[in-house]
Design a protein around this nucleic acid. Structure first.
Lengths: 193, 193
DNA sequence: GTCTATACGAAGATAGAC
DNA sequence: GTCTATCTTCGTATAGAC
């Protein structure tokens, strides 16, 4: 396999992740993805023998790792206010895209949940969510929260963010995101349930 | 128009709302909806001249009103713990459906956001979210919160719930919902930003 | 490996019989 | 009004030429 072929494969995955965020799982077609990635259609099933399912699965995994890396960078940069930093970055992304850019993992989670033969996608989604939760839990424990409450808190913060992104898209307005930026500190301030 | 025709029309809307919650906007077809509703296919475009778009739009409106009524009933039944009551009802629905039953409004919000010619659906989604926010805001003000913080808090609570539903479906686990049930009180306890 | 052409199926929407 | 049949479009996936 040539180097350009490898690059082409990765471009397809990244294009799929980007389009997943805005168009959703069933809103993207292989034709559009490979067109966006400037990749040849003919080699799609050579690079991804399992077709769309495999592309989406790898896109979910890649997008999950990107988000994890971004979150980790924020937490490392400012231990106390890392979460707020992360929120600000997502806020900017939402407004810049005029609320078109959502969370690709959420899109995959919702649209694959009732699909037959989508087990690999569901598995990837579950793994990504679990990884995010573990990252945040570890951070919250290091901030002094009790281990069991830190776990709930991590999940609640992720739920809050994901929900706010959906609300912003639905209302074409950044207000929901500003609302959670205002309210999440109250959850974080509570040291136990 | 006969009485049974009116009933048939309503059955289609309710079937669409139910299937929207589990299968998503693009996961349902008119054929499946009218089959589930036990309604004739031939009269579909007679009752809904704008086809699927109109059915989905009305389903979103109907589901939104149902949820509003349910929330209002909880808040009226127990002013102090009405929100927890509402959370418990949704928790039961999630577990009983084995995490298949999501929020139809969220599904429509995500899957219609980048669709062309889906303005009516987007409008209905936006209106439903706004109504929920208003309901909760009024309630929180009556509980003693400052008006501006009550507004943010209402949005944050809704975001939290919607996000948790997505996480539960993605992980096939009720843990995320229990996490927000544990953490939401901390937000509600804070009397200001 | 990458192309074009195509098989195959599903879905929205419409036409015409009854 | 409600049915069946059909048109059209689009998506996945595959076959075969180069």
């Amino acid at each position: 396999m040539s180097k350009s072929a490898i690059e082409g494969r990765q471009r397809v995955i990244e294009a799929a992740a980007a389009m997943l965020a805005s168009h959703g799982l069933r809103g993207i077609s292989i034709r559009e993805v490979i067109k966006f990635a400037n990749a040849p259609l003919g080699s799609t099933y050579h690079n991804f023998p399992n077709g769309k399912q495999q592309i989406v699965t790898e896109a979910v995994q890649w997008a999950g790792e990107q988000a994890s890396a971004q979150l980790q960078a924020c937490l490392a940069q400012d231990k106390e206010n890392g979460i707020q930093l992360f929120l600000q970055q997502w806020r900017k992304r939402l407004t810049k895209s005029e609320f078109r850019h959502g969370c690709p993992i959420v899109a995959a989670a919702i649209e694959a949940s009732e699909e037959e033969d989508a087990e690999p996608v569901k598995q990837a989604v579950s793994t990504v969510f679990a990884h995010w939760q573990q990252l945040l839990t570890t951070h919250l424990i290091s901030l002094g929260h009790a281990a069991s409450y830190a776990q709930s808190l991590a999940v609640a913060v992720i739920a809050c963010i994901e929900g706010a992104v959906v609300l912003c898209r639905g209302q074409q307005n950044i207000a929901p995101f500003d609302a959670i930026i205002e309210c999440i500190p109250a959850m974080l301030a509570a040291k136990q349930a």
